[in-house]
Structures are given as structure tokens and as C-alpha cells.
Design a protein around this nucleic acid. Structure first.
Lengths: 213, 213
DNA sequence: CATCATAGATAGTTCCACTATCTGATAGCG
DNA sequence: CGCTATCAGATAGTGGAACTATCTATGATG
């Protein structure tokens, strides 16, 4: 086993493939806690550091998050409050792109309100994700493809399927200790997975419908 | 009606909210064709320009695409080839993030192959979306959440639902002329919609499962 | 004891999406 | 006709983001 705890920064860098100056940069930016100083110019990094560093890279490279959002999100991961629903809510809240926007397109806003009602979802219509959805619908209108909003209910069904799977996974596999980390990973990497799967299913479907050879 | 065709750049800017220098920048970058010169220093922009400009902004702001990818994608939109399947494939191809990566994690790669087989999807396992999925699964492993791959099949079902809705919409509402544009909009804005809906469904589900007051 | 790695600080780099400025030239108005 | 606003096209500059490089001590290690 190479599970040696307490390595120095060079070894941490070798193990994760992240350059030393970049690790230092993450520490400066508050994404990663500093190593434990064993002398004025020597610090040791634990397995937790390595794990955290891999998480940062995954959020950055696969999730496409900015360093600033990662700092936010990891703030939630380290938050001591551990009530499940609150923690789920906070973690996901911080993962929605924020639109400064106030009140473009009341039509889009209304569609979102109706959808939430129709689905019986117990969510605040001012939830950031609802804002994001409103923004997307408004963009569809602006671009002259408002009709695409017709897929909303099918999308909502699919989203429910996904959310059920997410919650089942959380219930089954995740302990309170890395709950938030699990939620973050599942949300961010899950988005990437879902997008990729959507492309694959589209490709398959279009090949069947408009087939080739 | 204010459907006056052939406006000048100032008016185009006013109508879309995009600053004049930014419009010029998009023209330089090849996202937008130049206006038709009516004299050495006067050009007129048509409704098509306005429409295209709105599309660019939607892809940038809601879709989060880079100027470079937008140029690529719009290249497909303007491509004269219009066989439905090919066009769908090309448009979606250009919308998948490309990973330079070759061969990290054969386990992840194998999982993707198996999933495609299990689903009976007629897609090349080397499809860029399959690569992206492989990358996501590899990231899960690296981060110590490999178990999350257990949701794959549920996600795949959801993706099929979404893809069916997408294709039905294309078949019902979109003519050959703006097929590609429709696909691009549906793909990019559709991703944003799906992500937002997933958050809403998650919030609802977690509220029911771990409820609050 | 000589060399190497390290902490911590500061400064520099690259890329991206704009934004500003400048030079003529024309439009449109009175 | 003259005046001002607007424009095309070219070049240069800006600000933010994510690094990357350099420097100074200082301690680790063989």
C-alpha cells in the first residue's frame, strides 16, 4: 500500500499531476487548506489534502466551475451544519449560475410558475434554479424558438427521474460525513454525465428516425 | 409593426442591447457577417443579422459557450449540407467539450461501452459524447465517488426521454431551413433547462424525503 | 557540508471577451 | 452649403481569470 500519510508538496504534486505553484495558488485562494507546518519551511500534506485537491480539479475540469465558485461550494462542504435538507439545499444553491437580471419576460416567469404548480413541486418560485429556468425560456423567446418550451413537461419528467436516482444514491451510499461532498460531486459531475448521455441518446434517436445505412 | 429591414449598426445595437464595438468585434471574429455596404462608410443590417446576433448572445450568456465554439457551431448552421441525420450529428458534435485525453481509466471506458450495449444505442463508442461520459466517470473514480456511477442507468432513461422530446419537437416544429439553428438552440438552451429542472426536482425531492417544517 | 526542496511573497504571463480611440468619410438636416 | 452626428475599418488597450515564474531565506537529506 502507498497510503503514506503526511507527504510534502512535491509528492502531492506528483501524485495528483497538479504543478506545485498551482497548489500554492489554490491555497492562497482558499480552496485548499495549507499543509501543517513541521518547520518554518516545511509543511506536510495529508490524504485529506490529496482528496480535496482531486475534488478541486474535477470541479474545475469536468464541472467547468470557476475558482471562485469552487471556493463557495467548498465552503458549504466544510460547513459544520449537517441537517440533510438544508445541506442539500445550500450545496445546490451555490451550484446554480446566478443571473443578475430582474424582470425580463413575464411570460417566461409565468411558464415557470405554472410548471412548478403543475408538477406539484414544493419549491419557491424564486429559487435560483427557477430563475435560471426563466432565463433560459426568455432566451428561447428572444431567439425566436419559443416553441421549444413545449418540451418542458417531458424534460421535467426526466428531471424527476434523475432527482429520484440522486436521492436514492444519497440515501443508500453516503454517510453524513461526506454528504455534502457527495452532493457536490453528484450535482456537478452528474450534470456532465447527463449532458453526455443526452447527446448519445439524441444521436441514437436521430440515427433511427432519419437513419443512415 | 417595426419590422423595418436594413437598419444601421446603431439601431441594431439599440434593438439588441449589444454595444456597437461588440458587434464589430463579433464581425471580426466571424460570428456575424458584415453588413451590406451602401457606401464606403455605411452598412445596413437586416433582420437576419438581428436574429443571428440574438442567437450569439443566447449561446454566450445562457449556453456559456466561448466565442470560438460559437464560431464553430455557427459554421455548421451555415453549412449548405442539409441531410437531417448528418446535420444533427455535426451540430451536436461541435457542442461537446473536447477532452485532449487519451487513455485514463480503462474501467470508465468499459462502463461506457457496456452502457451503450445495454441500452442498444447505435452510437460509436468513440463518439465525443461517449468520451465526455468516460471522462466524467473517471473523475468520479479519482474523487473517490465511483459508486455514483450506479445512477447511470436511471440517467440514461432520463436522457432517452429528453432525446425523444427533442426529436419529436424537431419533427413537429422545424423546417429544413432553420433545422440546424433549432438543433443548436435546443441543445444548448436545452442543457441549461435540464440542469435547472434537475435542481428544482432535487429540491422538491429532498424537501419531501428529509422535509422541513 | 553541499545540494535539494520548501514556504511564502511578489510579479509576470496567457487567454479571453470586450472596449476605446483614431482616421477618414458620409448622412442627414437646416 | 455647412455642420454635426454617425459610421466603417483598423489598431491598441482593458480587466478578469487561472495560472506560472522568480526570489529569499531556511531547513531537510544524503
Amino acid at each position: 500500500m502507498k497510503g503514506e500519510r503526511a507527504v510534502r508538496i512535491g509528492e502531492l504534486s506528483r501524485r495528483t499531476g497538479v504543478p506545485v505553484p498551482t497548489i500554492k495558488y489554490y491555497v492562497r485562494e482558499g480552496l485548499l487548506s495549507a499543509g501543517e507546518l513541521t518547520s518554518p519551511n516545511q509543511a506536510s500534506y495529508s490524504d485529506a489534502h490529496e482528496r480535496r485537491l482531486r475534488l478541486i480539479r474535477a470541479l474545475l475540469e469536468v464541472g467547468g466551475l470557476s475558482v471562485a465558485s469552487i471556493r463557495d461550494v467548498l465552503g458549504a462542504v466544510d460547513d459544520p451544519d449537517r441537517s440533510v435538507h438544508k445541506v442539500l439545499g445550500e450545496a445546490t444553491d451555490r451550484l446554480v449560475p446566478r443571473y443578475a437580471n430582474g424582470d425580463e419576460s413575464p411570460a417566461a416567469r409565468e411558464k415557470v410558475r405554472e410548471l412548478i404548480a403543475r408538477r406539484g413541486w414544493r419549491v419557491d418560485p424564486a429559487h435560483p434554479a427557477a430563475e435560471a429556468l426563466t432565463e433560459a425560456l426568455a432566451a428561447l423567446e428572444r431567439v425566436g424558438h419559443g416553441a421549444f418550451a413545449g418540451v418542458l413537461d417531458d424534460y421535467a419528467s426526466a428531471a424527476e427521474t434523475v432527482a429520484r436516482a440522486d436521492l436514492a444514491h444519497v440515501g443508500r451510499h453516503i454517510g453524513l460525513d461526506d454528504l455534502v461532498e457527495g452532493v457536490v460531486v453528484g450535482t456537478v459531475i452528474g450534470d456532465a454525465m447527463l449532458m453526455a448521455l443526452r447527446r448519445l441518446a439524441q444521436t441514437d434517436g436521430s440515427s433511427r428516425a432519419y437513419g443512415e445505412g
